[in-house]
């Protein structure tokens, strides 16, 4: 006889369990953890390269950077002197909590004030995987399209901040800044929005201030 039985189970329960463990570990150490998500090439690595050396020197930063293959991004970030470990996902289009746990082990036992997790370039899949982060941040470059928040709402709804990057290219592209703000606020009214250019340095100081403010909130 065929019957229906209740069987409530979270499919990503194992990921969520590990993420919860990481989150409580981060909370105990008062580490701010920011999960950076974007389409490939939006400028996550550049944003870190441009800003890491400019954080107040007493703050200990570290980076875990995810890619399907190569450790190119880790090599770029290492030039800033910041401790960094590459997580190579070997085909997987997102990071999961277990990978972050292993990446942390590779970083070694050190006190970290701000941990940046640079996710695999992809605006869809990373949104489904909790990494135990304090906040998700979405980076959107002006060469993409001001309707990205409407096309990929899950990522924007779950992010605390959107960084609109490459604003130095605005004169050459169709991207409408006001419309991008409007679309981001439409899917997530509380989302913070910053504008940056890693080429000219515009907005980088504001980005650093935003991150430091978040750290204060974690510590209070």
């Amino acid at each position: 006889m065929r019957k229906r039985v209740s069987a409530k189970t979270k499919v990503l329960g194992e990921n969520d369990r590990v993420a919860a463990e990481l989150r409580s570990r981060f909370a105990k150490r008062k580490t701010l953890v920011l999960n950076l998500i974007s389409a490939p090439g939006a400028g996550k690595t550049s944003l870190l390269e441009e800003s890491l050396e400019r954080f107040p020197s007493e703050l200990r930063t570290a980076v875990l950077t995810g890619d399907i293959e190569t450790d190119n991004d880790a090599a770029r970030i290492a030039r800033s002197g910041t401790p960094v470990k590459q997580i190579t996902t070997r085909g997987s289009c997102h990071l999961n909590a277990q990978m972050v746990g292993r990446g942390l082990e590779k970083l070694g036992a050190r006190d970290i004030d701000i941990l940046f997790i640079e996710n695999v370039g992809n605006l869809v899949c990373p949104a489904s995987f909790d990494l135990g982060e304090t906040s998700k941040i979405v980076v959107l470059s002006v060469t993409e399209g001001d309707d990205k928040p409407l096309k990929y709402p899950a990522t924007f709804v779950k992010s605390r901040l959107v960084v609109i990057n490459k604003i130095d290219l605005l004169p050459y592209v169709e991207f409408d800044l006001a419309r991008a703000h409007e679309n981001a606020k439409r899917v997530h009214p509380d989302i913070d929005i910053l504008e940056t250019s890693c080429k000219t340095g515009d907005g980088i100081e504001t980005w650093i201030r935003w991150v430091v403010e978040r750290l204060k909130a974690v510590r209070s």
């Binding site: 229906r4 039985v5 069987a7 189970t9 979270k10 009214p189």
Partner: peptide, 21 residues
């Protein structure tokens, strides 16, 4: 008010099984 909180929409959850004995 726009200050509302999300209560559902991101679930990936098994709800039931259909079984035969």
């Amino acid at each position: 008010t726009s200050q509302t909180e999300s209560i559902s929409g991101d679930e990936i959850e098994i709800i039931y099984l259909e079984v035969e004995d």
